[in-house]
Write a protein that binds this DNA or RNA. Structure first.
Length: 138
DNA sequence: CTTCTGACA
DNA sequence: TGTCAGAA
């Protein structure tokens, strides 16, 4: 995984087509989680850009930012999502950041939902029929 | 020069 | 959401 959070605001604006005001606003809405470095400046990752692009897309589709936030922070598990959806909502950098660190405050249920989704997908995809004959478990 | 935050229209 | 001010 490469979670290079080196994308500047300018780049983010250029790549997403969103205004700095919007990007900052979405950041406040916890839709994106840019690293903060030198001069308290935002450093976005590819995942952040991806999310921003999705936000823009959803926004263009006539969704309110609250709706968008719901979709991005807590995507429905019951939805018939395809692997594409997961790619669109790439939390790898988020997991990477909070995965090894002490995650106890941030990420209320967003991670869990996304994780559950991924897990359920893997479950369906791989069809894991693990029948333990012997009742031996650790 | 570019970005950040807070605030106003 | 755009834009201004003051600071970094």
């Amino acid at each position: 995984m490469k979670s290079d959070k080196n994308i500047t605001m300018k780049e983010a604006k250029r790549r997403t087509g969103l205004s700095s005001r919007q990007i900052r606003y979405y950041d406040e809405q916890d839709l994106i989680f840019p690293e903060r470095s030198s001069g308290n400046q935002r450093l976005f990752s590819e995942s952040d850009i991806k999310v921003l692009e999705k936000i823009k897309e959803l926004l263009a589709q006539g969704n309110s930012i609250e709706t968008i936030r719901s979709k991005i922070t807590a995507p429905e598990i019951e939805e018939d999502l395809s692997e594409d959806d997961y790619q669109a909502l790439d939390y790898d950098d988020s997991f990477n950041k909070y995965g090894g660190a002490d995650l106890d405050s941030l990420y209320p249920v967003s991670n869990r939902s996304a994780l559950l989704k991924k897990l359920s997908l893997i479950n369906k995809t791989k069809s894991p029929e693990g029948e333990s004959k012997d009742g031996k478990k650790d």
